[in-house]
Amino acid sequence: MTEEVKQSPVGVRDAGPEDAEFLLDMLLEAVNWTGEERVSRKQLLRDKQLAHYVAGWQRDGDLGVIAVDLGGPGGLQIPVGAAWLRRFNQSARGHGYIADDIPELSMGVVPAHRGRGIGRGLLRTIASRAQDAGIRAISLSVEKDNPAIALYTSAGFRTVAVGNDDTNAQTMLLDLLTWTQPEPRQS
């Protein structure tokens, strides 16, 4: 006999300066997407090209959302995922850098909460908020074997560059000038 576990509802709220540690946790999940610890927290913090995705959060122009489990004890909202945008420039590029005026997306979901549509909801929400803020496009970098590519593609991202580094990561772009929010998937 299989016991069905009831899942708590999930909401989304804006990310604030108090969420910097959680964003770091989610960046670590994104970097270690295979499930093995390829990069430790200490290594991530020492790697300037990775750490700059969260260092000094929330600076002017940063935009982020946090998915929260609404079923915590006493109404406590427990963070279970995050998506955030940050602009970089030519001298301090992100892995998915395209231009100074195109922010780069970072996103992660706590492993125990994956497969519930949380990533899809975060992606829709952050893209909508970016569009409302007048941002024309967002970019991201994703390794070629990461299953999240299917999520990004279904949301309207297209591949604009493929890297030649060890990860063979690709840079993807979502044009927010033509983007329309996809309908939520039915379960």
Rank of each mutant, 00 (worst) to 15 (best):
T2G: 13
E3D: 14
A15K: 05
G16T: 15
G16I: 11
E21P: 00
F22P: 04
L28D: 07
L28S: 12
V31Q: 02
R38I: 14
S40T: 15
L45G: 02
L45H: 03
D47V: 01
K48I: 08
Q49D: 14
A51H: 06
H52S: 11
A55F: 04
G56F: 02
Q58N: 11
R59A: 15
L63A: 08
V68E: 04
L70H: 01
G71P: 04
G75T: 10
P79Q: 05
L85F: 10
F88K: 04
Q90T: 08
A92I: 03
A92G: 08
R93L: 06
G96R: 02
Y97Q: 07
I98D: 09
A99N: 08
D101Q: 13
S106R: 09
S106C: 15
V109H: 04
P111G: 06
A112P: 08
I118S: 03
R120A: 13
R124W: 00
T125L: 00
T125C: 11
I126G: 03
A127Q: 05
S128N: 09
A133P: 01
A133S: 13
A133G: 06
I138G: 02
I138D: 01
S141A: 15
N146A: 09
L151W: 00
S154C: 07
A155P: 01
R158I: 13
V160R: 09
G163Q: 09
G163F: 04
N164P: 00
T167P: 00
N168C: 12
N168H: 14
L174I: 10
L174F: 12
D175N: 15
L176H: 11
T178Q: 14
W179R: 13
S187E: 14
